[in-house]
Design a protein around this nucleic acid. Structure first.
Lengths: 180, 180
DNA sequence: TATTGTTATACTCTATAACTATA
DNA sequence: TATAGTTATAGAGTATAACAATA
């Protein structure tokens, strides 16, 4: 049952690997989200935005953030609005290009991260790192870096949406296929 | 900057591995969701429910499904309702225990999977498997299996929610900390 | 009393499309 | 004309709590 329909199935090792990888990451992500919410009232996306801004050299544009997080720009506007209202980030127009908005983390934002990060790392350590040794980590990082770079080689999310929209105008085959 | 505050930071290899792992899986999941929606009008959760039922020996209870998918039971009821309305699954009371509901996949459900799965596997192959060889796969599977089993060793999601509720009644310190 | 599952509800999130403004 | 970002809107998804029925 492994090699009959080469196009319609994966080898068992391939499928198993895919399934266990996504399952484990889902479990980890679920636990992480719970901790972030309880410890700092942050969703995972909000935390990721803050972290990106905290570790960036300077301010980032909205598009940079959206692409980095695989996020739609309108979704990011929404989340950035929440974070700004909470005083954790600022948004200021860029002087060089008036279309661009620079997002930057505030002191309160850094304080929030300081409050949340230890528990966050504790969860990561307890659930994810505990069963791994240094060699596992090195290997895992090497493999997943290759996978990520391979995927990042395709166009980023926000541009892809625009291109899809454009392409749809040219040839319109009626995309999807009704209800769930 | 690696070893000063052992409690508040991870070693760089640890952090890098964690970040690249979650980033790659996010990218993959995003692409997969797009494909499932376009090819079969299914969300990822709906697809996962169908797949579990398709590969199960017989019907599964709602709780089994919820725990397997790291999902709240009410959320599962909602999704199962959609799938049932679409004729892709059935829900029938279990004769042995009248509280229990058995969910099973229908022929239409299997047909939907047949329609969606090839494209799904194509995405997985193109984005995830392409840059990996057999040895990578074996290693990755071994590592992630260990991680998953470690995480699964803790109580499943639906039970955890109940326990948390109970514990909250005993000592009530006012959990979270306001706004985002 | 504990467990299975559903419902009612309220809310968060996300995407699409239309829009503004700058380049 | 193309790009950056926002807004308006509408829909999907999720969790919580209350509930019913069974064990």
């Amino acid at each position: 049952m492994a090699d009959e329909r080469t196009d319609d199935c994966l080898a068992p090792e391939e499928l198993d690997t895919y399934i266990v990888l996504t399952e484990a990451v889902s479990l980890l992500q679920y636990a992480v989200e719970e901790q972030l919410r309880a410890a700092g009232g942050l969703s995972l996306v909000q935390f990721q935005i803050l972290m990106r801004l905290a570790f960036a050299d300077g301010p980032l544009t909205m598009t940079d953030l959206a692409d980095g997080l695989v996020y739609s720009r309108s979704g990011l506007t929404y989340q950035a609005g929440l974070l700004e209202k909470a005083g954790l980030i600022t948004r200021t127009p860029c002087p060089d290009d008036e279309r661009v908005v620079h997002a930057a983390i505030t002191d309160a934002g850094r304080a929030r991260i300081d409050r949340v990060l230890p528990g966050h790392l504790e969860v990561v350590r307890r659930l994810f790192l505990t069963p791994l040794d240094a060699s596992d980590l090195r290997t895992l990082r090497a493999i997943m870096t290759r996978v990520r770079d391979h995927m990042r080689a395709r166009p980023p999310r926000s541009a892809a949406a625009a291109r899809r929209r454009t392409a749809a105008k040219a040839a319109r085959p009626g995309r999807d296929a009704g209800g769930p």
